[in-house]
Design a protein around this nucleic acid. Structure first.
Lengths: 128, 128
DNA sequence: GATTGACTTGGAGTTAGCTCCAGGTGCCAT
DNA sequence: ATGGCACCTGGAGCTAACTCCAAGTCAATC
């Protein structure tokens, strides 16, 4: 698979894929004799994984470290696990924040619903 | 309340508060005769609201628009409501992404748990 | 064998969102 | 009234994460 196919498949630009590889966010992809990237199945799995993690905000820096550890082999299993646990923890925190903010927005929207509904009745306009 | 008190209360730097006000992310705060910001209760509510929304990733640009609409008065109730609904929608999407990614991480961590557990038994190391 | 188009690289540029700084002012305590 | 401190403003600088660009190469087609 070449870079445009992979980009198309995962919704990433070629520039982004090259950038990811350059900074070590993806393990180095093999080239054809001509120097063109030739993504294997495993490369694609990495791309998908990285995309997924970036999507929910894991920092590039952290993912670079994860990839680097991976490339060091089994010695780093424990460290990688801890890294993932830490990121999972932070993700859970953000998730909860988002959940409660979502509810807050719902409440707020509800109030808007009422105000716009009773708009012509000269309702007092509370905060926001 | 002055800027350092508000900053302390909500965990925002003075620079950030000034920046927020400068770009219109907060309604203009009144000054004392000396020119020093004097936050009212309502100002504080705005600060808290904005902080909360920024925390879950609503773009500054969008919040600026919301504040601007608010300042235009009741004419914009409908528009503001729609803005909130749109942001709520996007938040819900991200929330779901995060939820499934969290589960994915849990699965992955589980597998790490097993590998590190059975590490000395020369287990094969699968992808990641 | 010349042209075309997709790829390559290294490096510069961009965007969002702050964060820092210099130079200035007001207020309070000495 | 003078020193020190917290505040002010406008503007420059910074970080993360891309995104764009120029100049070059290769492979396939005319």
């Amino acid at each position: 698979m070449n870079i445009s196919e992979v980009g198309g498949k995962f919704g990433l630009s070629q520039d982004t894929l090259r950038y990811y590889e350059r900074v070590g966010l993806l393990p180095r992809v093999n080239r054809t004799k001509g120097g063109v990237r030739d993504y294997t199945e495993e490369d694609c799995k990495w791309v998908e994984f990285i995309k997924c993690m970036r999507n929910v905000g894991l920092p590039v820096e952290v993912l670079i470290e994860y990839v680097a550890l991976y490339q060091l082999g089994d010695e780093t299993l424990q460290t990688r696990k801890e890294l993932l646990i830490e990121q999972r923890k932070q993700l859970a925190v953000r998730l909860e924040e988002m959940q409660s903010t979502l509810e807050r927005l719902d409440t707020k929207i509800d109030r808007y619903e009422q105000w716009t509904y009773a708009k012509d009745k000269l309702q007092r306009r509370p905060f926001n």
